[in-house]
Design a protein around this nucleic acid. Structure first.
Lengths: 171, 171
DNA sequence: TCGAAGAATGAAATATTTGTGCGTGGATGT
DNA sequence: ACATCCACGCACAAATATTTCATTCTTCGA
């Protein structure tokens, strides 16, 4: 599982295609092609390339948590007691393995980890809490923020900036 | 833009299908069918239904931020001065409209909002900060946590629990 | 207990989309 | 100026998705 993250170069076509796929990856290549002025095969080759290069990390369906019995979202900050490399790694692996932990970031600052969690009920969260935090004596402190509104949830990456600079003309 | 969130009922087949689609929605229906013991058309009908019901909110490609020039992830807590309904709503709309804001949660607790942001550089973040927080006099305080490691990033929803209880047998 | 109605299924046929081979044209470099 | 390299578009082939239809299973009522 090594990162095949070579410094891929993306041109305006690639970005335009990504723009589509980030919104709806079921869009037929033909339509994308029409929109960006490219043939379907060209679009297909570019998509393939970006998938191979890891620019496109995955193609997934987004599920509404509320409709599958997980109406509660929490953001949790976790502070550890000891920050040795091994304990940090252990924590990472531990959090990552929990299905309820949708996202986990290892961060600088007042907290060590930020978790985004999904649970059916507060009771379930309380139980999780017990298992994950109280049951781990390397957890010094944690702070729970309950989401009242998932104002914006997605993994869309802004594409307008940041790439242009290091984009050599393709031909 | 109304939520078509009727209390859809999902059976074990639906959940098994979702399990697949959450991992890779390019999986051929035939394969899903084989895996869950259903014909391709049956799988297709169920997917369609879940899309219509909003259980499947979207089908998207996940892009690696680092490879498109957005290597920095930050988690930001924002506290507002005034919390009138209008100002909260204004803040929601404001944050949601910013492309760099990948996620935005309105939360209870010590902060009012938690944002997950993507930027190319710290300089870019500083500029954003100026525009978004210092430039908004309803922002009392904000706290930035820089992600050193995106340990686990996804929008996968746990499906094993929480649904079974309110799942009537389909036939 | 039996029969009718509704729902969902699988198999087959059709439509659509995706994938591949090949020849062409433009840009780069010698 | 010429050769080479890429990426393109076109045409065809393969695979996948979608529709149709007859059947089975379950449920509900007589």
């Amino acid at each position: 599982m090594t990162d095949t993250a070579l410094p891929t170069s993306l041109d305006a076509f690639d970005l335009a295609i990504l723009e589509f796929l980030q919104r709806d990856n079921a869009t037929p290549q033909r339509l994308i092609g029409e929109a960006v002025n490219l043939s379907a095969p060209a679009v297909q080759r570019r998509i393939r390339r970006m998938e191979d290069a890891g620019v496109i990390a995955a193609n997934v369906a987004l599920v509404d948590p509320a409709q599958v019995g997980q109406p509660l979202t929490l953001v949790v900050e976790v502070e550890l007691v000891s920050e040795t490399a091994e304990l940090i790694d252990a924590a990472k692996r531990g959090f990552a393995a929990v299905p309820e932990v949708q996202q986990c970031y290892y961060v600088t600052g007042e907290a060590d980890f930020v978790l985004v969690m999904l649970v059916p009920t507060m009771a379930a969260y309380e139980a999780l809490t017990r298992r994950l935090f109280f049951g781990n004596n390397n957890v010094k402190r944690f702070r729970s923020l309950v989401a009242m509104d998932r104002v914006k949830v997605g993994l869309t990456v802004p594409l307008k900036d940041g790439v242009a600079a290091r984009t050599p003309p393709r031909r």
